[in-house]
């Protein structure tokens, strides 16, 4: 026999948990946010570069190493979609663009990929959020989104 008060609390808790799960599933289907994926390792990704596919599509081969990201400044025109291909030359580093919910790990021997669209101009900081040594706190880069052309 379950106490009446306990039944009430169980129902309240169950309702709230169901609300959380439903909210997450709803957001996932409605906004179709991209989830980072792993790609087969290829040495081509270890050369840092920015590739322009067309006017609104770019690829960034980002390489993390103690204690810097290459390229350190990425110029992108506003409204463009960017594919980040991330790897590391040494230890595990983090790759976090807080304003765009980008949260990846740079791991030696793997390629981590995600896609993001930059619809608003501004400077987006990339920080390392995985402790990687004495210079970890200074490890950062920038995505500079502006009008009208990219460098």
């Amino acid at each position: 026999m379950i106490d009446k008060a306990e039944k009430v609390v169980i129902m309240i808790t169950g309702t709230i948990l169901a609300l959380f799960v439903f909210s997450i599933l709803y957001a996932k289907t409605k906004y179709k946010s991209d989830i980072p994926e792993c790609l087969p390792y290829d040495k081509a990704y270890t050369e840092p570069k920015v590739n322009k596919i067309d006017e609104k599509t770019y690829q960034v081969f980002a390489v993390a190493q103690m204690w810097t990201f290459q390229p350190a400044e990425i110029y992108i025109p506003v409204g463009s979609e960017v594919d980040f291909f991330l790897t590391s030359k040494d230890v595990v580093h983090g790759f976090n663009i807080a304003q765009k919910n980008i949260n990846m790990m740079a791991i030696y021997g793997t390629i981590n990929k995600t896609t993001v669209r930059f619809d608003k101009p501004g400077v987006y900081d990339i920080v390392c959020h995985e402790y990687c040594g004495a210079g970890h706190q200074n490890m950062r880069a920038q995505v500079i989104v502006n009008y009208p052309k990219a460098k």
Binding site: S23, Y31, Q99, N101
Partner: peptide
């Protein structure tokens, strides 16, 4: 707190 962070994260994906 939960929904505050939830809507903040949604806003960042736009």
């Amino acid at each position: 707190i939960w929904f505050g962070i939830y809507f903040l994260m949604i806003e960042r994906t736009k």
